[in-house]
Simulated scan of single mutants.
Amino acid sequence: MKYLNLGCGDYFSKEREWVNLDFVSSYEGVIAHNLLQGIPFEDNSFDLVYHSHVLEHFSKEDGENLISECFRVLKPNGVLRIAIPDLEIIAKKYLDFLEQGISNPNDELIRANYEWMKIEMYDQTVRNTSGGNMKKYVRQDNMINEDFVIQRIGDQGRVMRNNFLNAKNSNKQVQSSEKKNTPSIITRIINKLKKVTKNKIIKFLDINLDHIAIGSFRLGGEIHQWMYDRYSLTSLLTHKGGFKIEVRDAFSSYINNWAEYKIDGKDNVVRKPDSLFIECIKK
């Protein structure tokens, strides 16, 4: 058997049947490749193609091309498994907390959950800086709905929250260290001259650095460019050549030993709880 994990990030199997590919290789054995240029393998090469929280980072058109590529490299009767943020559940929870908030305008927990669902729905589409409002929300000193947020986004939220709390606890030590390492007057003069020269060049060339920074970020791959639910993704897979389409959970699959790879979760804990898991067979 031969399996392919696209956009694997930090979650992949090192078992010999797996080929792991990501936009940037951060681990030995992970192939670096830009999926906007297609999948770099021959037709009918794999028994399984898998990607988790990758498709939503492509535009609608590029996403359709990615699905076509997945079917191209799959063997006949091979399995395509996809995990994406579930637009249906996000929308339902947003509407649920909206109604609850209208009925209970003074309930701060309901308000907090409502605000979070708005962020979960829109932030990764509209943000212009890394982490966006999601990062700001998780880095609150007092997050009254912490359990709910962690339940929604799993490891991602837990790591972000823990990093913030750890950094906060060590902040005084960092500030103290910075005071002891004040740059010399010569270094400060040189830095000032560099800044003045840079600003003059920018003004002369009529460059808007904010526009450049935002454009660079939004083309960098972090934002969500399209969203899916079980209806739209099923339609897309059917159109591209899939059948026997099934909604799964993190541990069930056409692949008999899927749970053993511990990619979508382990010990009955789902890595991305906000996910819609869908599989299909290539005709």
Rank of each mutant, 00 (worst) to 15 (best):
K135M: 13
K136N: 08
Y137F: 09
R139A: 08
Q140L: 13
Q140M: 13
N142D: 14
D147G: 01
F148A: 00
Q151H: 07
R152L: 01
R152C: 10
I153C: 04
D155C: 06
R158F: 06
R158N: 04
N163W: 04
N163Q: 14
N163G: 09
F164S: 10
L165R: 09
L165T: 00
N166Y: 10
N166P: 00
N169K: 11
Q173A: 10
V174N: 00
Q175K: 09
K179T: 07
P183Q: 09
P183G: 06
I185K: 11
I185T: 13
I186F: 15
R188G: 01
I189L: 14
I190D: 13
I190W: 15
K195T: 09
V196W: 07
V196H: 06
F204G: 10
D206N: 14
I207D: 07
L209W: 01
D210F: 11
A213T: 12
A213H: 02
I214D: 05
F217D: 10
L219Q: 11
L219F: 05
E222Y: 12
W226A: 15
W226F: 15
W226M: 15
Y231N: 05
S232K: 05
L233W: 07
L233V: 06
L233Q: 05
S235P: 04
S235Q: 15
L237Q: 07
K244D: 15
I245T: 14
E246T: 06
E246K: 15
R248Y: 05
F251C: 06
S253G: 08
S253C: 10
I255L: 15
N256D: 10
N256F: 08
N257H: 11
N257S: 10
N257P: 02
W258G: 02
E260A: 10
E260G: 00
Y261K: 09
K262R: 14
I263R: 03
D264Q: 05
G265C: 04
K266D: 11
D267T: 07
D267F: 12
V269F: 09
